[in-house]
């Protein structure tokens, strides 16, 4: 059993209105040192797999088939033994 933690981000160049709003509010609060804010999504999955490479293959496939929209999003994940 493996735990997979998936992080999904907007591709660079895709305008994310939320990140702009968060950055503006941070600036209002006095955090002038913030130059960039990225938003994204996070999923944690438990995967039954023979070994880590097959867990990786499953994770890649489910990211591409469902969790991300390749038009606007990129993803990365980390895997650890559960």
């Amino acid at each position: 059993m493996y735990t997979v933690r998936v992080y999904i981000y907007y591709k660079s160049g895709v305008l994310d209105p939320q990140s702009g709003a968060i950055k503006a509010t941070l600036s209002d609060l006095g955090f002038d040192q913030i130059h960039d804010v990225e938003t994204g999504r996070f999923y944690s999955l438990k995967i039954d797999a023979q070994d880590i490479s097959s867990a990786q293959a499953i994770a890649n496939e489910l990211c591409e088939k469902l969790l991300t929209n390749p038009v606007i999003e990129d993803y990365e994940f980390e895997i650890m033994e559960a």
Binding site: V14, D16, P17, Q18, N69
Partner: peptide, 8 residues
């Protein structure tokens, strides 16, 4: 694809 409205 669609993103959130500009006004959130």
């Amino acid at each position: 694809a669609v993103l959130m409205n500009k006004g959130l």
